[in-house]
Computed example of a mutant assay.
Amino acid sequence: MTYAHLEVNDTTAQDEPPRNALIVANPAAGTTRTELVEEVVETCRERLGRTTVHVTTCRGDATGAVREALRGKGREEAPDLVVAIGGDGTVHEVVEGMVPGRRPATAALAIVPAGTGNSGYRMLWGDRPWRESLGAVLGGPAGGARKRRLDLAALAETGGLVFLGACSGVIAQALETARGIPLTGRPRYERAFARTAASFIPYPGRVTVDGALLHEGDTVLANIGGGRFRGGQYLVLPHSLPDDGLLDICVIGAEVHPREVPGLTLTGGHLDRPGVVYSRGRRITVERLDGAPLCFEHDGELQRGDWRTMTLDVLPGMIPAWGPRSEERTAAA
């Protein structure tokens, strides 16, 4: 795999710098600190006409706060920028609030990474420091930022929205393992992934893409997205573009031993292995065939239920999100 540096010059009048921000901070996220929130708030207030802050108090709180703010109050202008401070779960809740009734969002999203994996931030900004990316967002095109209309997916089994992606198998099970590991940030998931992979037993599965069979047999994982990374560093979907109107799918079969998967996916090296298939489509269904519940997650949250399937339908261009005008993308060598 090689990395091609692509210059993007499609800035339009719609990419004017933001004027009015809502900051949503999750104090329970993996690396959120009071000092971090205060610095983000101060930076926004120095550069924008109006900045309001909401600190979440419970699961789902971010979604309600964003919906209320975007309705506007009286003569107050609704925010044109929503800044999510937290991890992938926080970003997912914010996105849910930005698209009520599955209508495309009008405000734009910016992310300050403060969670365990932060795959959503890395999808947009790579490894750039958050101070640099936030400064670019507040400056708009002149600051080196542009808006992209990102695709979402709808999860048929729950009716929920998916921002980053969804995955069955070893990656999902590692989230359960992570609960008992006393670390924060990426090291926490890294240890959980390795520990889970060492003893993971592939499940009998089937994957279809737009009605056509892609895979059937023992399955280590099936990852759909969206975002190229899982856990902030595992390049499971190297070719995925978040704004192409399609969902990417990678399935790793039992030909690859689960304990090899963490190391292989750090570089995208799994794509060259027998038993690995990769495709794209608009509707993707992952099934477990032995009658047991399918273990899967989306946006870093393990899904609790008795489902044997997960079905994702793409929702193109739903979320304007600020990213760099130039970006590194993964391409085949």
Rank of each mutant, 00 (worst) to 15 (best):
Y3V: 15
L6G: 08
E7D: 15
D10R: 14
A13M: 14
D15G: 14
E16A: 15
P17R: 09
P17A: 07
I23A: 07
V24R: 04
N26Y: 07
P27G: 08
A28M: 09
A29G: 06
A29S: 15
A29N: 02
T31M: 02
T31K: 08
E35N: 04
L36H: 11
E38T: 08
V41T: 10
T43R: 13
T51W: 11
T52A: 13
V53F: 11
H54Q: 06
T57E: 12
R59P: 00
G60Q: 04
D61N: 02
A62T: 03
E68T: 12
R71L: 05
K73Y: 02
E76R: 09
E76H: 07
E76P: 01
E76L: 07
L81H: 09
L81A: 10
G86A: 01
G87K: 10
E93P: 02
V95S: 03
V95P: 00
M98N: 01
M98A: 06
G101Y: 09
R102W: 04
R103E: 11
A105I: 01
T106R: 14
A108L: 06
L109P: 00
L109G: 01
A110R: 06
I111C: 07
V112P: 04
A114Q: 02
G115N: 00
G120V: 05
L124M: 14
W125L: 07
W125C: 06
R131T: 14
G135T: 14
A136K: 15
A136W: 08
G143P: 13
A145T: 11
R146Y: 12
A153M: 15
L155N: 06
E157N: 06
G159L: 10
L164P: 02
L164H: 05
C167A: 15
S168I: 12
S168F: 05
A174N: 05
T184S: 10
R186V: 12
P187H: 07
Y189I: 10
A192H: 04
R195A: 04
T196P: 04
A198F: 05
S199C: 07
G205P: 08
D210H: 13
A212P: 04
L213H: 11
E216Q: 15
G217D: 15
D218T: 05
T219S: 11
V220P: 00
V220A: 01
L221E: 01
N223E: 10
G225C: 12
G226H: 11
R228P: 02
R230N: 07
G231W: 03
G232Y: 02
Y234M: 07
L235I: 10
V236F: 10
V236E: 03
P238M: 07
H239G: 13
P242D: 10
P242C: 12
L247T: 10
L247C: 10
I249P: 04
A254L: 09
E255K: 09
R259V: 10
P262A: 02
G263D: 08
L266W: 02
L266C: 02
H270C: 00
R273D: 00
R282N: 08
R283S: 13
R283L: 08
I284D: 03
E287S: 14
D290F: 12
L294H: 07
F296V: 03
D299L: 04
L302A: 03
L302E: 01
G305Y: 02
D306I: 01
W307V: 00
R308K: 13
M310Q: 11
V314W: 11
V314Y: 11
L315E: 03
G317P: 04
W322V: 08
W322L: 09
P324M: 13
P324I: 06
S326E: 15
S326A: 15
A333H: 13
